[in-house]
Simulated assay, not measured.
Amino acid sequence: MNDTGAAAGGIGAVALGLVVLFYQIGRWRGGDPTPKIHFIAGTAIAALLFLGGGILGVMGGAAAALGDGLGRYALENATGAAAGAGNKGPLTGGEKVGASGAIAGLCLLALYLGLIKSGRADLKQPVIRGALCGIWLGASAGLLGMALGLIRTSGNTVGDILIRSI
């Protein structure tokens, strides 16, 4: 994804997220009796499962590793210099964060599914709105961060090859 696509996706996601957030604020001002914590819990579920801690966190780590491998291959073949083949840790650490975030998100999701199933159907709408708001507002940061992360990773690959070939 290029920077322009990431910025356009980020702006669209922010717009959708703000619409849902303002709708929820309007419901609270209109006398919605549901406590605000359920909307915030929906946002937390989205953040843990889909954004920084979950699926996109793992994908970000995989994308960084893939970008590093492709950049290393291209530069090694273009320059004839071999990069060091030592043991390197994960580039982003997103895999560990992704696993723990997904576990916490699944626990919170199970709690709310149990509450809704046991007769608290009034919690369904605020939790869903919170999750959508969290996904869309967080996606803007995620798309821009992913675009910048891929640029950073390819820059690190160039630096590794240049330093190790000297």
Results as ranks from 00 to 15, higher is better:
C107V: 14
K117V: 06
V127P: 06
S100M: 10
G101L: 07
G105S: 04
G80V: 05
G105M: 03
G80A: 07
L109V: 02
T92H: 11
E76T: 08
G94M: 04
V97F: 14
G67Y: 09
S100P: 00
A141Q: 05
G67V: 08
A141L: 10
P90K: 00
A104I: 06
N77V: 01
L113F: 14
S118L: 10
G71Q: 14
L111D: 03
C107P: 01
D122K: 05
G98Q: 04
K117A: 15
K117N: 08
G98I: 02
A83M: 10
Q125F: 12
L132H: 07
R120C: 06
T92E: 00
L66K: 15
W136S: 14
A104E: 00
G94N: 09
A81K: 12
L123Q: 07
L111K: 04
Q125L: 12
G101E: 03
I116M: 09
R120S: 14
G114W: 11
P90R: 00
I135G: 06
L108Q: 02
G94T: 02
K96C: 04
R129H: 15
G105P: 04
E95W: 13
L66S: 12
G69P: 00
G69M: 15
A81S: 11
A104S: 06
A110Y: 10
A99S: 05
I116P: 04
D122G: 05
L75N: 13
L106R: 01
L111V: 08
A102I: 02
A131S: 15
A141P: 02
V127Y: 11
N87Q: 07
A99T: 02
G101H: 06
I116F: 08
L123C: 08
L111F: 14
V97A: 07
L132D: 06
A102R: 05
N77W: 06
L70F: 15
Y73K: 13
I128T: 09
L115H: 03
L91P: 00
C133D: 05
A83D: 11
V127T: 09
V97Q: 03
A81E: 09
L132N: 05
T92M: 09
L132F: 12
G69L: 14
Y73S: 13
N77A: 12
G67H: 11
R129V: 01
A65Q: 11
G105Q: 05
G94C: 03
W136F: 15
C133F: 07
E95R: 03
A131M: 15
L66W: 14
A81P: 00
A74G: 10
G138M: 01
K124G: 04
G84R: 10
I128N: 11
L109Y: 13
I135H: 08
I103H: 06
A81Q: 10
A74Y: 09
G101R: 01
G69I: 10
G98D: 02
T92A: 03
A131K: 13
